[in-house]
Amino acid sequence: MFKIFKYSFFDLIRSRWTYIYAGFYFLFTLGMLMLSSDLSKVVISSMNVVLILCPLIATMFGVMYYYNSREFTELLLSQPIKRTSIFTGQFLGLATSLSVSLLVGAGIPFLMFGVFGSDQAGNFLVLLFNGVVLSFIFAAISFFIALKNEDKIKGFGLAILVWLLLAVVYDGLLLLGLSWFRDYPLEKASLIASVLNPIDLSRVMLLLKLDISALMSLTGAVYRKFLGSGVGMAISVAVLLIWTIIPTLGIRRVCLRRDF
């Protein structure tokens, strides 16, 4: 598996798109840091970008990489290599290269502006952690979808649909539900709903870390109580891990049944 990982990783890290992706983060973060001297504001702006872009790019790269490396995969399949090693290796190579793009692209400007000497070091690390986790989650989901669908267009469409559901539609429905039932105490329900969606969960984790939850009134207080506690934090991290593990196991299961 390590060899497959190595080939996938170096193949991707040499790709033009990886540079463009990292370059975007670099320029964006650098620009924000030059415009604002308040590091915490830059962390918030970066958060908004990372929470949308990491899942989206991981989804698109995941599907594209699977379909584009079919020849390589077929070559590997006829060699004495375990199937699960081939696909797990490719997925890990992809997710790692995406994470490296994020870490380098968004990390270097913050380091240049001395984030570790400031009080934002913790927030910065939580931001990067969530970006990396989201990259892994969405790379796994899209790789799984691509593996299940022979048809490129269908695979691409489904993967984007899943991203759209989790990144946009979910929040919309949540808000709609909250406004419909606003006469009832919904703090717990909305907390559970947020924790179940990895993008929302990452956002809440960051907002609470950034200490601007006061903006969120009573709900914010409930969130604060939950995530501020050791148990709440453990549950959140566990949910993120489950979101990574389930599609990864899905990849391993589906790849054993596919014909090539």
């Binding site: 390589f72 077929e74 070559l75 004495p80 375990k82 199937r83």
Partner: peptide
């Protein structure tokens, strides 16, 4: 079934030579 080591015993020439470009 679910084995892979046996492929060490096999040299295979695929029908259409498809390689990473």
């Amino acid at each position: 079934k679910k084995a892979w080591e046996y492929r060490r015993q096999i040299s295979y020439l695929p029908q259409i030579a498809r390689f990473p470009e």
